Structures are given as structure tokens and as C-alpha cells.
Simulated scan of single mutants.
Amino acid sequence: MKRWILAAVGLVALALPAAAQQKYRFAVVPKAMNNPFFDLARDGCQKRAKELGNVECIYKGPVEHEPATQAQIIQDFITQKVDGLAISVSDVPAATRVIKAAVDAGIPVITFDADAPGSARSAYVGTNNKDFGLALGEMLKTLRPDGGKYAMISGGPAAKNLAERVEGVREALKGSKWTEVAGSPTFCNDDVTLAVQQMQDLKTANADLSAIVPVGGWPMFAPEGFKGFANRYRKDMADGKFTLVVADTLKVQLELLKDDYANALVGQRPFEMGEKSMDTLLALKKGEKVPEIIYTGLDKVTKDNVGAMLKM
């Protein structure tokens, strides 16, 4: 009898490592794969997946910002029966429908970067976007308390995270000497070339425009085009007559700031979003409770600290 018990214990012990090595396939769906911001989220999720050992990070989204294509990709992942989904939501109504379909199929879903809070998703990992907008507006006020006319550039009009940033900028500048021009914000739909063109269009349409605040890094993701624009107004930027406060702090942006092509940046932490997305999905898959909101923080960068940021 004793031998039988010992043998049974041994069999259980042998079985545990196999169970511990159960593999999970988690899909990360960005708004657009041609946006370098999401490359960092991809790198973060792949690094964390490798560290965890039993997780695979599958990264796939639309090549360009196309909400309908994103919804179809999510639907395809549901059909493939992935173990979890992390989605940067392009269009809240479209995403809400497919998120419900995923949850109904038993697939845990979180959002990252851009949320759909009324959906069936379990958690959001990313920036407090209202605070992000407030930080952009406060940075502009700090640099130019004298005020003037400003304009914003946004991405997709249906993206809740971007709408919150726009709202935050406006709230920060309310009651100040800054006024927003008609036609602001413009929407580039994450097209970096169009974002640069919109900067020039705004300046052409408003000769007395004193500042442009892109609420995402799009124009700087086309560095040569951005340099071409900034060079036309380099003297006004140096003299404090024209100011560029841009969202995000990718390396290319930090280098542009260091070389005086912008005045300040306010950045998110996309790499950390990718890491935390993997941890959160794994916890959900194990039946653990997770916080509904997981904020990843902001970084404020000017000429004073850009060198330190480039070394990080």
C-alpha cells in the first residue's frame, strides 16, 4: 500500500512540470502596423513572452489605420481560438462588437493604448489619455505663457484615446491666453506623410498661428518631412514666436528635439504596455483577478533632459 502511495505521488510530481509548461498564444492587435509607436509595444510583448517561456506573442494589425480591417483581424483571431487578445482600439463601436464575440467564445480580452471602456474587455493597459492631453497643454503654457493661436493634429476621429487627449489639451488651455483656430484638430488617420502636410496646411491657413500640438507623434515619424517643415520656421521657433509641442518620445523624436526641430515632447511608454499586456492576459488565463485600469505613466521632455532620455 505504501509503495502504491509513493508511486502515485511520484506520478503527480512528474505531471506538474508538464502542466506548468502549458503554452498560451496571445494576440496583440495595433491600430496600424506602419506606426512605429506600436513597434515598441510589439517589442515589449515579445520580450516579456520570451521571459515567461510558455507564452507566444502574435503581433498583427492593419498595415494602415483601417478600423474595418482591424475588426476583421480580431474576428480571424477568434476563429483561430487564440488564448487572449490585446487590442489598441481604432473604432469603439466596431471593436465593441468583436470584443463581445471574443469573450462569448471564451477568449479573455484587454485593450492597450486605446480603450473601449463600455465593452466586455477585462482591463485597459496604457496611458491616462486625459492626463496626457493636460500635460501637452500645460507644457505649451509653460513654454509660451504669452499665448496666441494654436492648432492640434489628431489621428482617427473615432479613437476614444485621441479624443480624450484633445479634450485634455483644451481643458489645460481654457482660460489662458491661448485660442484654438477653426478646423482644429485635423485628422491624419495615422498617415505620417499626411500629418506633416496638415502642419503646413494649418500654418498656411493661419499666418498668425503660434503653436501646433500633434496629440500623437505622427509628423515626427516622417523625420525628413518634419525637418523640412520645421526648417521653414526655425527662426520663429528660436525667437519664441512659433512652438511645437508633440506627443510621444520615440528615439527619432528625441533626436529631432535634441537638434532643435521641436520645443518639447510628452511621451508614453509603449514598450511597457506590451510587457504588461502579456502579464495581464496570462493572469486572466489563470483565472486571477486583475486591475481594470493599469496606467503606464508619462515622460515630459525638453532640451534640458533630452540627453538623459536618449541614454535610457
Rank of each mutant, 00 (worst) to 15 (best):
A15Y: 13
Q21I: 06
Q22M: 07
Y24G: 00
A27S: 09
M33H: 09
N34S: 15
F37C: 03
A41Q: 06
K47T: 04
K47R: 11
K47W: 13
N54A: 10
V55F: 02
V55K: 01
C57W: 11
I58W: 14
Y59H: 02
Y59L: 03
K60V: 07
E64Q: 13
H65F: 11
I74M: 08
D76T: 03
D76S: 03
V82M: 04
I87G: 09
D91Q: 06
R97H: 15
K100Q: 14
K100C: 08
V103M: 02
A105E: 13
P108W: 12
P108C: 08
T111K: 00
D115Y: 07
G118L: 05
S119L: 14
A120D: 12
R121E: 04
Y124F: 14
N129K: 02
D131R: 05
L134K: 09
E138D: 12
M139I: 07
L140T: 06
R144Y: 02
R144M: 08
D146E: 10
Y150G: 02
M152L: 02
L162A: 09
A163M: 15
R165Y: 03
V166W: 02
G168K: 04
V169M: 07
R170I: 00
R170V: 01
K177I: 01
S184G: 02
P185R: 00
N189P: 09
D190E: 08
V192N: 09
V196C: 00
M199N: 04
M199A: 02
T204M: 01
A205N: 00
L209N: 00
G216T: 15
G216C: 06
G216Y: 05
W218R: 08
P219C: 01
M220N: 06
F221N: 05
K227D: 00
G228N: 01
F229H: 01
A230P: 06
N231G: 14
R232I: 06
M237A: 03
D239T: 11
G240P: 13
A247P: 06
L250A: 10
D260P: 15
Y261P: 05
A262G: 15
A264Q: 15
L265N: 11
V266T: 13
G267T: 15
Q268G: 04
Q268P: 15
M273I: 15
E275T: 10
K276I: 08
S277G: 06
M278F: 05
G287D: 09
I293S: 12
T296P: 01
T296N: 11
G297D: 04
K300I: 07
K300L: 07
V301H: 01
V301K: 05
G307N: 04
K311P: 03
